[in-house]
């Protein structure tokens, strides 16, 4: 999504919407393409269609949400060590 931002004004909500849905469309196309091209898989579960996409999406969300939780424990004021 960042690479698109160079072209248009990133702050404008209309453009942001377009970018997001454009990206979603590309993602959908990739899954379809995968079905057409076909690929070999090293592990059985890896062969499931869309595995990589779902995995990437899930991991990303998990990482961010866990990170958010972690912040509660780890966050300190900026001058924490100087006090």
């Amino acid at each position: 999504m960042n690479e698109g931002a160079k072209r248009g004004m990133f702050e404008e909500p209309r453009n942001v919407d377009r970018l997001f849905w454009g990206l979603a469309a590309v993602c959908g196309a990739l899954v379809v393409l995968e079905l057409i091209v076909g690929r070999h898989a090293e592990f059985p579960f890896e062969g499931w269609p869309g595995f990589y996409g779902v995995f990437g999406f899930a991991v990303f969300v998990t990482v961010v949400l866990i990170g958010k939780r972690l912040r509660r424990f780890l966050r300190r004021e900026e001058d924490y060590y100087d006090r």
């Binding site: 979603a24 990739l30 990303f60």
Partner: peptide, 23 residues
């Protein structure tokens, strides 16, 4: 040589980017 590999990698990354947009 393995087009499938490129494809899956793109999938992984772009879906992750999508997740960012979603969040």
């Amino acid at each position: 040589a393995d087009l499938g590999h490129c494809l899956t990698q793109l999938q992984l990354l772009l879906f992750a980017a999508l997740a960012f947009g979603f969040l």
